[in-house]
Simulated assay, not measured.
Amino acid sequence: MMQYRAYLIGENGVFRSAEAFEAPSDSSAVDFAKRFTRLGKVEVWQLGRKIAVLDSEQLCPPLPEPSRPTLTRQ
């Protein structure tokens, strides 16, 4: 397991808070950090290495509802 941090980035580009966690790989760390995007933009770091920048869910338009099949009566 490797040590990672997910940094919540404020609108002014300054770190607002950080969450330290462990993950087995970079991709697992990114998947874990995605849960914080509901609060804003997130940067994922492993020591001094930036892994990813994740956009805020607030900036993303909502996904369309999946269409439901219509029931027909016979």
Rank of each mutant, 00 (worst) to 15 (best):
Q46I: 02
P61D: 14
R49D: 12
P62G: 11
Q46M: 12
V42A: 07
V42Q: 05
L47Q: 11
L59I: 09
F36V: 10
A52P: 00
E43R: 02
R38P: 01
P62L: 12
L59R: 08
R38Y: 03
P61C: 11
R38W: 01
K41N: 10
Q46R: 15
R49W: 09
W45Q: 04
C60I: 14
Q46C: 12
D55Y: 07
R35S: 11
A52S: 07
L54R: 12
Q58D: 13
K41C: 13
Q58P: 03
A33N: 01
C60L: 14
L47C: 02
V44N: 00
R49K: 12
L54H: 05
Q58H: 11
V53C: 12
F32W: 10
Q58K: 15
P62C: 08
L39C: 10
L63P: 10
D55S: 10
F32N: 13
F36M: 09
L59C: 09
K34M: 09
K50F: 04
A52I: 06
K41I: 08
I51Q: 03
P61R: 14
V44T: 03
G40E: 06
E57D: 14
V44E: 01
L54W: 03
R49C: 02
V53K: 10
P62N: 14
R38V: 15
R35V: 11
P61W: 03
K41R: 15
V42I: 14
L63N: 15
V53N: 08
F36S: 07
L54M: 12
L59E: 15
F36R: 03
W45Y: 07
P62M: 07
L59M: 13
G48V: 11
L59P: 00
K50A: 09
P62V: 10
R35Y: 04
V53S: 13
W45C: 06
G48A: 13
L63Y: 12
A52C: 05
Q58G: 14
T37K: 04
E57R: 07
K34Q: 15
V53W: 02
V44S: 00
F32R: 14
G40I: 01
S56A: 07
R38T: 14
L54N: 07
K50H: 11
R38E: 13
P61S: 15
I51G: 02
R38K: 09
L63M: 13
S56D: 08
Q46S: 14
V44Y: 01
L47E: 11
W45M: 11
E57P: 00
E43M: 04
L54G: 09
F32Q: 09
R49Q: 11
L47W: 02
C60G: 10
K50T: 11
E57W: 05
L54A: 08
R49F: 06
A33Y: 00
T37C: 06
P61F: 08
K50D: 06
C60Y: 08
Q58W: 08
L59H: 06
E57A: 14
K50Y: 08
G40N: 04
